[in-house]
Every structure is written in C-alpha cells, then in structure tokens.
Simulated assay, not measured.
Amino acid sequence: MLGALVRSEARLALRDPGTTLFAVGLPVVLVVILGCVPSFREHSADLGGARVIDLYLPITIVMVVALLGLSLAPGALARYREKGVLKRLATTPASPALLLAAQGAVIAGLAVLVAALLHVVGAAAFHVPTPEQPVGYVLALLLTIATLIALGLFIAAVAPSAGVANGIGVGAFYPLMFFAGLWVPREAMPDALVHIGDATPLGAAVGGLQDSMSGSWPSLSHVGVMVAYIVLCSLGAARWFRWT
C-alpha cells in the first residue's frame, strides 16, 4: 500500500512543472552560474582559504530540500484536506498516516537525487571535492531532509488552506536561506549572525554539511539543533494536524 502511494505521489509531483523547474533545474543552473564566475573558482583568504563554489554546493543542496519541504508538502497536504481526500482515505486501508509517509518518501527521494546530481556537476565541471567524511555527510543530509519534512508537516497542520500554506512556506524560506548563507556565505558573516544562523534549521543543516565536506563529523550543536526542530515540529504537527 505504501509503495502504491509513493508511486502515485511521485507521479503527481513530477507532473507539476514548478516542482521540476525549481527543485531540479534551478539548483543545477545556480551551481553552473556560480562556477562560471572565475573569482568563485579561486581560493579566497576572506573565506578562510575556501572557494565560493565549494561553499555554495551544500547551500544549494539545502535550498533544494527547503523548496521541497516548505512548498511541495504543505501545499499538497492542505489541498488534500480542502478537497476531502484525507477524509476519504481515513475510511480505506490507505490511511492518512501512510499518505504522510509517502509524501516524506517522495521529498527525500527527490532531495537525494538532486544532491547527487549537484555533486556530479560540481565535481565534473568545477572540481568541487567530494565529502571527506562521507558517513557524516549522509547523516547531515538525512537530518536536513527530516528537519524540512517536519517543518512542512507543521506548516500543513496550522495552515487553514493551500494558499496560506504556500504563503507561510515562501515567507519562511527567504529568511531561513539568508541564515543558511545563500546571499552571503556564512564564512563572510559577522560572528553574531553566524551564531543566530546556527540556531535556525537551515543554518544548522549547512553547517553540518560543510563540516563533513571538510572532513569533520557534523558538530553536536548542529545535529542537536536539527534534532530539536524534528522533535518539536513533529509533535506540533501531530497535535494540531487536521484530517478534515
């Protein structure tokens, strides 16, 4: 039953051109554009000797997960509630809980696929190194996906309609991505902003991915922040989620 729901949700997601364009095409285009800037391929003393393109690959991967978790899942679940899909599913073996699991599986699959694609493009075109701590990197990526899915479920729980869910997701995306370093790399931020960013889900996600890219395990503070958001948002979603 879960497999059938996953296949159905995957087909619906891929039929949405916005999903394909923003979740798959936009990150690849962004990495290519950044990599084509000559100064971004040079090591910078202002960034601790790192290259801009190396720093932006984890940021772009987090952006993909954020787009999926804060936009795709909340909007889809809110639409299902509005149209009575969740209410009808509650009377079948395909329970609403299985639908949530299917949504999470689709988001996780797309995120892993795009992350792998970005690493291939970055390594082949701009010599972006592979993670020096691959196990820690996989752990950080899975925690990032789980954090954004939990946030998405929480938004779907409190939003009264699909339009409001999309609005909340978009409204949360931009400030969260600022602290993740999308506009200004975290290495170039003042210490105060970095500390604030470390307390946000996306700042902690980027920090964990960058730690493992450089050969370290994700720090306990970054892991702890993501786990806290997963637990709190999941509890909030379970408390306030309405099936009808």
Results as ranks from 00 to 15, higher is better:
residue 135 V to M: 08
residue 61 I to L: 03
residue 177 M to R: 04
residue 159 A to M: 03
residue 117 L to K: 11
residue 101 A to V: 09
residue 41 R to K: 06
residue 219 S to E: 00
residue 202 L to E: 04
residue 213 M to Q: 14
residue 154 F to L: 12
residue 9 E to N: 12
residue 5 L to Y: 10
residue 42 E to W: 01
residue 55 L to A: 05
residue 52 V to R: 04
residue 45 A to R: 07
residue 130 T to V: 09
residue 51 R to A: 15
residue 21 L to A: 12
residue 90 A to T: 00
residue 15 R to H: 14
residue 185 P to H: 13
residue 34 L to K: 14
residue 112 V to L: 11
residue 169 G to P: 00
residue 134 P to S: 11
residue 151 L to R: 07
residue 120 V to K: 08
residue 94 A to D: 07
residue 186 R to D: 00
residue 48 G to I: 01
residue 86 L to C: 12
residue 242 R to F: 01
residue 173 F to L: 13
residue 1 M to E: 11
residue 162 A to T: 14
residue 81 R to H: 08
residue 213 M to N: 14
residue 129 P to I: 09
residue 136 G to T: 06
residue 186 R to L: 00
residue 160 P to D: 10
residue 221 S to E: 15
residue 225 V to K: 06
residue 219 S to R: 01
residue 233 C to W: 00
residue 243 W to D: 01
residue 120 V to C: 06
residue 71 S to W: 02
residue 151 L to H: 05
residue 143 L to S: 04
residue 75 G to I: 01
residue 1 M to F: 12
residue 76 A to C: 00
residue 198 D to W: 04
residue 151 L to G: 15
residue 138 V to L: 10
residue 25 G to I: 12
residue 200 T to N: 09
residue 180 A to D: 12
residue 167 G to E: 05
residue 158 V to I: 15
residue 221 S to I: 07
residue 115 A to W: 02
